[in-house]
Design a protein around this nucleic acid. Sequence first.
DNA 1: GATATCATTTGACCAATATCAAATAATGAA
DNA 2: TTCATTATTTGATATTGGTCAAATGATATC
Lengths: 202, 202
Amino acid sequence: MFGILHSQTNLLMSISAFLLTLVPFTKEELEDILSHFKKETVSKNKVLVSQGDICNYLYFLEEGMARSYYLNDSGKEITQWFFGVGKFMTSADSFFQQTPSLYYLETLEDCILYSISKSQIDMLFDKYPKMEKLGRLATTEMLTKIVNKLNAIQFQTARERYEYMLAEFPDIAYHVPLGHIASYLGMTQETLSRIRKNNSQK
Amino acid sequence: MFGILHSQTNLLMSISAFLLTLVPFTKEELEDILSHFKKETVSKNKVLVSQGDICNYLYFLEEGMARSYYLNDSGKEITQWFFGVGKFMTSADSFFQQTPSLYYLETLEDCILYSISKSQIDMLFDKYPKMEKLGRLATTEMLTKIVNKLNAIQFQTARERYEYMLAEFPDIAYHVPLGHIASYLGMTQETLSRIRKNNSQK
DNA sequence: GATATCATTTGACCAATATCAAATAATGAA
DNA sequence: TTCATTATTTGATATTGGTCAAATGATATC
């Protein structure tokens, strides 16, 4: 079968470009802030944080994709969120409250990450009020996105939820295993498979 | 039938007590901050913000209860969140981005509210880094609660979702119309009625 | 390239919950 | 109190999506 071409937007987003979209840091501030992030490359399917760990780092995803997931009562992996290029990623509760993480964080592709520890970012929060603003704005954005997902999950049919997925994560939807998406959307992979089949026939 | 006694905890929570649980403001800071909030009493079933309005105020709920809701495609009211004593309430997106609100805000009981405008709170954000921290912490708390709801909605049966409601909003669950709760939990009110019946028989 | 492993698709059947309609109960206004 | 209105409950039936099992397809390793 001839494949459908899926757009590959946003292959890369530098952390400084991203920070500047939220808050107008000066060159000096930005340099100081960035000096506390550590660049690392991580290969595909690596678990960065396990359920029960304290999540010690906040990550910025310059390249690649990742997900958070947890194990439900039957031990099945439930994808909780996808992270794409140009996004912050962490197990938020665990990182900010320094409590055991409820989630795993796992790369889904080879990734280039910038990481920062809790103590370092707290130091930056104290040093720069603009960093508090950044934190607030980033959190507010996440809140909005989660509310969107909630509305999709709560009131839409399985097919409509898949359409939400395509809209929210266009880069990711065609590049990760079906089962990850199905559990993210709260349906079985059999159901998602049937939806995809019907969509492609239309 | 003899009614079950439902606990009435947290009948009142002062705004200063609440702020101090999140950030250690000094007496002077607190006084300055509170001077920008305006106390108002609002009677039951008043709409504070309508869908399409810009939400101009952030409210703190000292007494009473309220909800946010929207109208779905069929024009049915869907409760999106409940707000109880000691909580901040606003149409977050609309207030912070000054965009038309997707939601209505409506009191469910007579309320005592403290309101503050966007420009005033922005002024406080600029004046006090601790206010940015307050904003970040309050938003993070909200984020955690919404993730909880999402997990309940996504993976639990109708009965388990109702149990989540009782745990998250014990003060509210027995004091608002059934239909508000049913739409909040993503089920019909017939289903919720049957669940309550079964629970009371156990 | 052959084979083992893992991911996806397909089919048959079932359970949970929605829908629609009507009866009953509760509430509030005159 | 009485009546009108609104909220809740109940019953019958329909539908969506889940479960289980098996077949097919894709991928990676030797």
